[in-house]
Write a protein that binds this DNA or RNA. Structure first.
Lengths: 156, 156
DNA sequence: ACTAAAAAGATTGTGCACAATATACTTGTA
DNA sequence: TACAAGTATATTGTGCACAATCTTTTTAGT
């Protein structure tokens, strides 16, 4: 068996069903992820945020003063993605990027007052997305659990 | 309730649990999708393909002569993504891009001999990814079904 | 103290995604 | 048969993701 789920029917499928788009788990995941991010767009552009910026702000709302390495660990992103993203968040006034005094290599990211204010504006976003998804909470939780398991297995 | 699944514990979570990264279904989906595409990378670079190019080739293996609009419909991508991607596939010699005779606006995409040969090289990829995922087939099928349902709901 | 190795970020380059817009062609309707 | 509206694709610009590489700083072993 393969990651492509087979449901053979006609001849062309019988030959290499694992290479049909409709049998690809990853394609479904990829399309759903793209679609979900697309659904966030109108809500987040009102806050002047992209989806990856919104995720980053979530970490900073929780852990102001975090460094880039830990941020990357939490978000599963590297400095090549985060450095320019953080510069854009800084340019918008939501965060500041300061060097650590103990270790000059380390960049610490702090929430600004404006960044703090953004959080209250963002509070209605999760509910709005839940409505758009039109899926029962139990199914969403199951989906989340499977994605987390898959991610953990791929990281091994 | 919201798309962020709550599992309240400490004080900071109790305030706005729906804005915690660990409660975001979309973040799990996004991270798992990125990780899966990352896992494909070493397998596909041996074929000189990226993951979106691989998906595109799947459609063309099945439907040589398809136009850009139908390709975009199948892949949930637009011409802004597909036009440059198809040009790269053409530059690699896997496809040709020809104008339709009946309607000069339409671009038809055909498989080349080299593109056909690529298919047999790709046949081992799905199995390899299935192994990397380390998830039972039933869970993968469930994951796929939920993603498809979510995508369909978001498209409405 | 000196230096090799390691660590933290930053930089560069490629390839998506996608919004917005532009261009070329086709079709329906007066 | 003009011509407005619609359609198919292409172009432009922004912001990720990520590999590869580089710089700066720290740490460890001598």
């Amino acid at each position: 068996m393969s990651l492509s789920t087979t449901t053979a029917c006609n001849q062309s499928e019988a030959e290499t069903p694992q290479l049909l788009l409709k049998n690809q788990v990853c394609f479904s995941l990829y399309s759903a992820s793209n679609a979900l991010i697309r659904s966030y767009r109108p809500l987040l552009s009102a806050l002047d945020l992209t989806y990856p910026q919104y995720l980053t702000m979530m970490v900073i709302w929780e852990k102001s003063g975090i460094n880039v390495k830990d941020l990357g660990h939490d978000l599963h992103l590297d400095s090549g993605t985060l450095t320019p993203l953080l510069k854009r968040l800084e340019a918008k006034g939501f965060i500041t990027r300061e060097r650590s005094d103990e270790d000059e290599r380390v960049r610490l990211v702090f929430l600004t007052t404006q960044g703090q204010q953004l959080k209250s504006q963002a509070e209605s976003v999760p509910e709005a997305i839940f409505c758009k998804s039109q899926l029962p909470m139990t199914e969403l939780q199951q989906l989340k659990a499977s994605c987390e398991k898959l991610l953990a297995n791929l990281k091994k």
